[in-house]
Design a protein around this nucleic acid. Structure first.
Lengths: 211, 211
DNA sequence: GTCTATACATCGATAGAC
DNA sequence: GTCTATCGATGTATAGAC
């Protein structure tokens, strides 16, 4: 609104600081969670003073919720990678395999995303106002798109595409949680391909086809 | 070791206090997480002084880890309810449906267990020494028993019973996480029966049987 | 063993100089 | 707008009386 000068140096500086604070806050909150993160450490990580943090954000809670909402509507919104329409072309078994591989490739080696999962689940009791946007922004669009695709594959003869989409998502997310988030891959090993082969096989309805 | 008197009142008292402290600590840690829980509140919840807490437990961290390990090897060890051998009798479709219903009945209305899930996931980054016993004590036995059962059902012709057990577990756990832990049931509703029907249907290989 | 009282550090948040 | 310095509250942990 109004006559915003393009070369206003103050506004520019303020935006840079805001960005630096959010970047520093992200590192601290994702690593230590909400309660164990201090505003001193956020300020130090951002390279500014604590007073500057408070001049950009009302308090610790609004900095945290603002950051998490920003992450959800930003880099983690399309992390499961279903926005690529080219992914949905070909036989259902190929498409489902590509989607699953895409999801796991984007999550299994993404330690920052795994920290985000820890925080969003761990803080969901104290911040339901963050948990619900997670469902709305991340989980719901993926399940609905998947459900829509499965429903469009009449040759699969699925009785409940929406519930089948839940099976698909649940299998993959729980795999990431158990192997990576909970550090279970050495205790309970399972290859990525076996999960995907089995999941896709169950949905497209194949039984001991080869051999 | 040595001549422990059976009616030693001090030892008895000490055990009672220890129990009270663990009970109070459970309520606080499960509600607020590790960092947001203060030893003052633990002491108050247990009805003892803070010094008494420190005479029974070395510090906050060992109280927390001791409590969580106790919960894992105690009430949450068999929470998914597969210890009942009677559950495994009958047709595979019936057995799988019973197992799934059993799991969801034990978790969907168990708010304390849902708090435990938030804590164990949320603190897994700072306490990997708790996350791994979770996998070993809770997840692994269930997956292995399920995998063993699925492998014994030769009529199902499953190509990979172990991976199929992961699909089963993942679908149900993710359902609990999305609907209850993340408070998503109003945003993305899904009836329990639809999930179970679909999951069991995929595994036993039925397609649009009725109508 | 259990308590009250307290030591000492760190927390979130702000006042005032520049 | 950004800083240093600081406030009051609260944190973990312990000393000393009983």
């Amino acid at each position: 609104m109004g006559q915003a000068k393009i070369t206003n140096p103050d506004r520019q500086k303020s935006t840079e600081k805001t960005e630096a604070i959010l970047e520093g806050a992200m590192g601290e909150f994702l690593t230590h969670g909400y309660a164990a993160t201090s505003m001193d450490r956020v300020a130090a990580a951002a390279g500014v003073s604590k007073a500057t943090v408070y001049s950009h954000f009302q308090d610790k809670e609004s900095l945290f919720t603002g950051l998490i909402q920003r992450l959800m509507s930003g880099r983690y919104k399309t992390i499961l990678g279903l926005e690529n329409p080219q992914l949905l072309q070909g036989e259902p078994s190929i498409v489902l395999r590509n989607i699953a591989n895409n999801m796991l490739d984007n999550t299994m080696n993404n330690h920052q995303l795994q920290s985000f999962m820890r925080v969003i689940v761990g803080e969901s009791g104290r911040f339901p106002e963050l948990a619900q946007p997670y469902v709305k922004t991340i989980a719901k669009p993926v399940i609905e798109l998947l459900s829509q695709y499965l429903g469009s594959c009449s040759e699969l003869k699925l009785t409940d595409p929406e519930a089948t989409a839940r099976v698909f998502m649940g299998t993959l997310i729980y795999y990431v949680i158990l192997q990576e988030v909970m550090y279970g891959k050495d205790i309970l090993p399972m290859e990525q391909d076996r999960i995907i082969d089995t999941l896709v096989g169950l949905i497209v309805g194949e039984r001991t086809t080869a051999h």
